[in-house]
């Protein structure tokens, strides 16, 4: 199948190096300490953060740092075919773990000993790149909750189809069977916290694809930064002196 037309357009009309439209919104869950909705094209994810709070299970309490937990779920209505998925299937357990590890790397857990931070992410609409969208939503929600972090983690995916590197794959491109690289970086520190790839790529092509993903992550970071700054300014001036 042809994923990049001779004119250089993808199935949804984007250029190979073009991202889908992104949108982030803060403060969507009333009772949570921090919450956000993040959209990448048709992928839409909601994240809620609770904590730092008292550890629920005393045996998991750590005396030198905070416990970070993450739960990833997909709403039944998020995909085209409505399927009742059992809770805790392999895919969601794996993604929960991935998100947890990525976020734990950026949270300054040593500042909040003997506490627990819960991150709940739910996919409302799935159209490829849910992992990236979840990480971006979680970052927004954590900053909204006022949890100290080393840097904002942002994530973006890239792939390689029809011998072209593509940025931000959608569902059709994702399921095409080509390589799919999901990358999470800390843009300020210039460090990689997450790198996943299925299928294989020659090393020189991989470097190109990864470079593309890094560019994507940085674009997301710029946007997230804008959203957060606007939010902080609003909160401050509304509060007044």
């Amino acid at each position: 199948m042809e994923y990049v037309s001779p004119e250089g357009l993808r199935l949804d009309g984007r250029r190979p190096m073009e991202m889908r439209q992104i949108r982030g919104e803060i403060g969507v869950v009333d009772k949570a300490d921090g919450s956000a909705v993040f959209e990448m094209g048709n992928t839409k994810v909601i994240a809620a953060v609770y904590g730092p709070r008292e550890v629920q299970n005393r045996s998991q309490q750590m005396n030198d740092r905070a416990l970070v937990r993450c739960e990833y779920t997909m709403a039944n209505f998020s995909t085209g075919d409505r399927m009742r998925k059992p809770k805790g299937d392999r895919r969601s357990t794996e993604i929960s773990l991935v998100i947890r590890q990525t976020m734990e790397a950026c949270i300054m857990t040593h500042l909040m000993p003997r506490t627990q931070i819960d991150i709940f992410v739910q996919v409302l609409q799935a159209d490829g790149g849910t992992r990236s969208a979840c990480i971006n939503a979680a970052t927004l929600a954590l900053s909204d909750a006022g949890i100290p972090m080393r840097d904002l983690v942002t994530s973006c995916s890239a792939g390689y189809l029809n011998s072209t590197p593509l940025l931000d794959l959608n569902y059709v491109e994702d399921s095409a069977g080509g390589a799919d690289v999901t990358l999470g970086i800390m843009p300020k520190l210039d460090k990689v916290t997450l790198l996943q790839m299925d299928a294989k790529l020659p090393l020189d092509i991989f470097e190109n694809v990864m470079q593309l993903a890094i560019e994507g992550c940085k674009a997301v970071a710029t946007y997230i930064r804008e959203v957060l700054l606007e939010n902080t300014k609003q909160l401050e001036y509304r509060r007044g002196t």
Binding site: D33, P52, D144, A145, G146, I147, P148, T232, E236
Partner: peptide
């Protein structure tokens, strides 16, 4: 402090009291 630069770790407003520099966070616990 990252690479000799003072960096904020939360969203908020920078406050300075004499030598002290801190970020007053909004919407935290």
């Amino acid at each position: 402090e990252v690479n000799g630069e003072v960096v904020a770790t939360v969203c908020g407003v920078v406050e300075r009291v004499n030598k002290l520099v801190y970020v007053r966070s909004l919407r935290a616990r």
